[in-house]
């Protein structure tokens, strides 16, 4: 039986739900911030569809951060989300207009820093790899997603997926990566990857 928890504010509740892996948190924060981000994107040459896309991506980036334990709350969630949305829209607009990414107003919201991996995610190659992941069966797809995307430790994955221990996860992960590389090779997508 779940204990009844009381939260001081919506942010605390959303973060708790995210930590528990409850995707309802995404809907909650989406609803809370939709108006502001819709307004921002449409005021900056974007359409309503662009705004929806930006908001969804921003919400998911927040989810990634929280799930991987890399989120440190120093402001309201809406503040963080707005900063992420600005960054995401800046990159999307850059790609649309084929012009260098320009920063929006340098204000308090520009605290969101992208990692090297974040920079690579939007690349064409990562899209190929994402497609190859669709062809990868279970449990490899879930295992690799938990490890690389949600950044769970091998111990956590062992507990979540019912493997004996972390060593089993490590071995399974190695096998799964090889399978993914094989799919990429067979589809000709691996050619572009750097060879060891």
């Amino acid at each position: 039986m779940k204990p009844n928890l009381f939260f001081l504010n919506d942010d605390a509740k959303i973060l708790h739900l995210m930590e528990q892996g409850d995707e309802e948190a995404l809907v909650m924060i989406y609803r809370q911030n939709r108006k502001a981000i819709l307004s921002f994107v449409t005021r900056n040459s974007g359409s309503e569809d662009d705004a929806e896309d930006v908001l969804q991506e921003s919400v998911i980036i927040l989810w990634e951060r929280v799930r991987s334990g890399r989120f440190e709350q120093s402001a309201k969630l809406s503040t963080f989300l707005f900063a992420v949305a600005k960054n995401v829209w800046s990159r999307k607009r850059m790609r649309k207009l084929r012009e260098p990414a320009s920063e929006f107003d340098n204000d308090q919201f520009d605290s969101y820093e992208r990692s090297a991996l974040d920079e690579m995610i939007d690349s064409e190659r990562s899209e190929h790899i994402a497609n190859a992941m669709e062809q990868l069966g279970e449990p490899c797809r879930t295992l690799l997603t938990l490890y690389y995307w949600e950044e769970h430790s091998q111990e956590e994955i062992a507990a979540e997926m019912g493997f004996a221990n972390a060593a089993t996860v490590k071995s399974k992960k190695y096998t799964c990566k090889k399978m993914l590389e094989k799919i990429l090779k067979e589809s000709g997508m691996y050619v572009g990857l750097a060879q060891s």
Binding site: E57, I60, E64, A116, L117, M120, I121, S123, R125, S126, E127, H128, I129, A130, A132, M133, E134, R141, L144, T145, Y148, W149, E150, K177, L180, E181, L193, A194, Q195, S196
Partner: peptide
């Protein structure tokens, strides 16, 4: 670089 591309691709799939 290769490892980073694979990790980025898996993340993209997750997203």
């Amino acid at each position: 670089a290769r490892e980073a591309e694979i990790a980025a691709g898996i993340r993209r799939h997750g997203r």
